[in-house]
Design a protein around this nucleic acid. Structure first.
Lengths: 241, 241
DNA sequence: GTACTATGTGTGATATGGACACGAAGAACG
DNA sequence: CGTTCTTCGTGTCCATATCACACATAGTAC
């Protein structure tokens, strides 16, 4: 069976015989968004400071209620925009659903977590505090403040997923501006994986995958030898190999 | 912020200023379970036949309401047992959350899908119809009936995940009895991947991973040359490489 | 023109993955 | 007891991918 009971409840115990969405208590559904970007060669997460109970004064992921008439992904986009003023998430993917019983002190809340990626310099730390968020900013991943709810666990899960996807997809495009140098691309990989990579091997591998196009121009200034600019052939995730 | 609004709703529009879980309509939350097993060298899914509207008479995944005081995973286990009489899911993992607006004709339903694995011969097709399911049985994956709701999509997603995980984890243990031959193990892989594998390469690779232990005994009867029995060193998923 | 710094390039050693064929062990049968 | 049948169990070679590793080049700054 599925989804909901109607005439005959087969879910034992506390469910009714007739379907009536308000006849018994429901868990509530929210979305939370883990937005990553790379700023100054550090992987950063977007957090908002809570202005209200519970966890008032603590930092948390942007997120909130899913409306009755709204797709999950649309809710994630909306909360991101409303709470942080950030419009363009270049990549958004469902991460995991967190529903542990005690995770919210108010009531049973089941949260569908998403993770988002955006280009570093482009999506500068320019948060617009929302109605119940007193602040919003990007935090380097290695110096996060204590977080509300189970949001540290959600971020850990998101980071693991990002690291994994970096290996078998081209999601890195979403963390870079349209044109970039191979060194910049490599830095994104190093920042996310947390280790250095060999330049020659990295370039060889990237170029052999055939997902990058060289642009005619060269890199602007730099005070040193100019670098070739590249762009991703497709600005959407591609599975590699 | 996160999860729910309290004093000051920052979710615009249709949400209230004060937190009251029943003051406005909620999406409902269910779990659906995609249970796989291997029967007679075919990959099978456990389905139940619906006895009630909507989709009366159609087959669907086992599933139902998440209770207020119940963990998501517990709900998945419970629905599986209640609707199909199957007690032992050797492996259960969250798959994805399906929440498209029109997926359930009754109301907005957000379903957290799980996928489960169990050993073939052990978990024989022995369903116990539940209260609103008129039947339950294992269906070979390549001859599924038309399915209720978006359950075909859920099964497709589950199959993709299973195929992927077979490649980088040891989940196959959950589809086999405690002791098995390498040929049986290979057959599980072939059935799931939908293609044949080379015997020598398969054995070489499996044995080199160090996750299998040979048992002292040999295979029972068989009317041919007896095969060595193996067991997984750990009956839990292990990441390979 | 000299110093500085980031760019850009190739080879060899090693590990991995895939193709491929045949002798051995036991049961069934005459 | 020997012949037949069927499944078990094994090793080599080749192609490809991975990793470690060093130096000349093109600009800017002074």
């Amino acid at each position: 069976m599925c989804d909901m009971d109607t005439k005959n409840a087969r879910v034992s115990g506390d469910t009714p015989d007739t379907y009536d969405p308000d006849a018994f208590p429901h868990p509530s559904v929210t979305v939370d968004v883990v937005a990553f970007t790379s700023l100054e060669d550090r992987l950063c997460v977007l957090l908002v400071e809570r202005g209200i109970w519970p966890f008032e004064g603590m930092w948390a992921l942007p997120g909130g209620f899913v409306r009755m008439d709204e797709e999950l992904e649309a809710a994630a986009h909306r909360e991101l925009t409303e709470e942080t003023g950030i419009a363009e998430a270049h990549y958004l993917e469902q991460l995991f659903t967190f529903g542990a019983i005690g995770r919210d002190p108010r009531t049973r809340v089941i949260s569908v977590a998403y993770f988002a990626l955006m280009p570093g310099p482009a999506s500068e730390c320019r948060p617009l505090p929302g109605t119940d968020a007193v602040a919003a900013r990007w935090w380097p991943l290695d110096e996060l403040p204590p977080l509300a709810f189970d949001h540290q666990e959600i971020i850990d899960t998101a980071l693991a997923r990002l690291r994994a996807k970096l290996g078998y997809t081209s999601v890195a495009y979403a963390l870079l501006p349209e044109e970039f140098t191979l060194t910049e691309l490599q830095t994104v990989y190093e920042v996310i994986l947390g280790r250095t990579l060999d330049k020659r091997n990295f370039r060889k591998k990237m170029l052999s995958m055939g997902i990058l196009d060289a642009t005619p121009r060269q890199k602007r200034a730099g005070a040193h030898r100019p670098a070739q600019l590249y762009r991703f052939t497709r600005r959407e995730p591609v599975f590699l190999d």
